[in-house]
Nucleic acid binder design. Structure first.
Lengths: 318, 318
DNA sequence: TTGTAAGCGTTATCAT
DNA sequence: ATGATAACGCTTACAA
């Protein structure tokens, strides 16, 4: 039998006689044949794989439960579409170059990108190669890629308003990651909610959505404005850190100061007191991003955008 | 110029004249040429990529900081060796099959496997294909692969002994993941440390290294043995859950009951009180696993094993 | 120093 | 229903 026949058999096409089928099966076990997908990809010009690019600062990747959730959501959707998700971690300059080469190598038919920053080299490569792409969050620059977002600004505004509603007078914010749209938008929502009452001395900007940044930020806020009685932390991890600083300073939560977070991640239910926060559909973000790339890969649709709902969860911290 | 010359230029070999170099460079920018790595791999028979296979129950992948740390450690080492790390997530039956196909496709030159369970289909594929492999933890079955471990049993024994040393009389354990070597070994160490004083009614087995499993396990233990005054939780997440149950039951930690964990993950420093625990060199495990596969890929050495040190960290919970 | 040509393991298009 | 044969985009002798 010829390679052609074997190929047909392996791909389950019709027109393979029982006799051929049998001898092929025998040969396969005898030789221990496994199809070489790389060769197939070369001729097929597709890989049935989608990259998931994570470009987070070290600490955050480890402690942010959101990204794990997004990852799993994306994997589920890709798996259902019989695509392999390969996650690529960008943790250094070298990584950037290598990942760029990987993408041009035709190893993936599309990519999902989380937390890209303005002027991200990876984004530029993706755009130049015209690889189907979907961002979780706003794409940097004037990209033509798809993206999924939540209304960070609106949600921040809503939760701040509820904080106001509980009678807090001196409300501050620990703003994080202002170089990303999510961070900037949350601050914008906070500002909008406060209106006239906004006092810039009550906002402390920290670099990362991290526990330690939250602790430090709260400390700074307490020094600058000891009369603070409410704080919106840009994420649950930040809020958890703030809680520690508050505790160290002898302030009771929510009695002396109310605090609210953002994400409804694993942190939220496990801090003491449990956090009032914004629920973010992390797995849904991943899933939708996956569906958006798949659409582009299939040529079904042009790049598209999508807004997912978030909701306020009221617990004990405010 | 011919393909051959271009190939030589691209791979930075010698014997390329200045004239040729120039016209090639011009052509490259003009056409926007990017090498197709898939084609190169096909002829070279290697991919310069190493798979990192994660096969964790859903919840754990999201909330276990260890795995993130291992991932990052491995990525650093692979990156230094100019290899692309691709992480493959196994979260369903379909995933298993797809990942197996991916491996046979020649997309990776080797694999790092975390938390494989006995009789793992992925492990069988890896073995059959004779892909260079390194496990973090003991490989299941009589594998010929490399692996990196810590002395789970010895560390468990040591921390239990220190718990005894603080005068606790009724010491129990929340044992987790007994179907994995790490879980089983920690229980063995605990048992050994207690010797005659071991009371099987004081150990509660839970399925996962998770917060909720810890909460439930502690509850069960409190019901069965209200006089318990010390507990070794199989991981920090489990310990954190146990702390919640203890708090709910009105027990003070460490006054009424001392608790110790395992891992020294992000949990440990952030629970109240902070956890006494075993420090596990998570990033180091990842790094060493990477080096072990790289060695095999280069044919430098046969499969090998490696033991990394752990240490006890004494904080406030016991 | 450069060009030529074989070959990597598949799929796809033809004849047969 | 099956066998040739030409791609796919690259590396690598070997010849020029």
């Amino acid at each position: 039998m010829s390679r052609g026949t074997v190929s047909r058999y392996v791909n389950g096409e019709r027109y393979v006689s029982a006799a051929a089928r049998e001898s092929i099966e025998a040969a396969i076990v005898k030789v221990g044949y496994v199809p070489n997908t790389a060769a197939r990809n070369l001729v097929m010009q597709r890989s049935q794989a989608v990259g998931f690019i994570v470009h987070e600062p070290h600490a955050l990747f480890v402690e942010d439960p959101n990204i794990g959730e997004i990852l799993l959501g994306a994997n589920t959707a890709l798996s259902e579409a019989d695509h392999q998700m390969v996650v690529l971690i960008v943790d250094s300059e070298r990584d950037t170059d290598r990942v760029a080469r990987y993408l041009s190598g035709g190893f993936v038919d599309g990519v999902i990108i989380v937390s890209a920053r303005a002027n991200d080299p990876i984004s530029r490569v993706v755009e130049r190669l015209a690889v189907p792409a979907a961002y979780v969050g706003h794409p940097p620059g004037a990209s033509t890629a798809s993206f999924v977002i939540i209304d960070n600004s609106g949600a921040a505004r809503a939760i701040t308003e509820r904080l106001i509603g509980t009678g807090r007078q001196r409300i501050g914010m620990i703003a994080a990651a202002l170089d990303r749209d999510s961070g900037a938008d949350r601050l914008a929502g906070f500002t909008a909610a406060l209106g006239d009452r906004f006092d810039e001395r009550l906002v402390e900007a920290v670099p990362l959505y991290s526990y330690s940044a939250g602790r430090d930020g709260m400390q700074a806020l307490l020094e600058r404005a000891p009369d603070i009685d409410g704080v919106f932390a840009a994420s649950d991890a930040v809020a958890a850190g703030a809680l520690e600083a508050l505790r160290a300073a002898g302030r009771r939560v929510p009695d002396d100061v109310g605090v609210v977070g953002f994400d409804d991640s694993a942190w939220a239910k496990r801090t003491l007191p449990a956090l009032s926060t914004v629920r973010q559909p992390a797995a849904g973000l991943g899933r939708q991003a996956a569906l958006l790339v798949l659409d582009q890969i299939r040529g079904v649709s042009a790049p598209n955008e999508m807004l997912l709902d978030s909701a306020i969860v009221w617990r004990d911290s405010a």
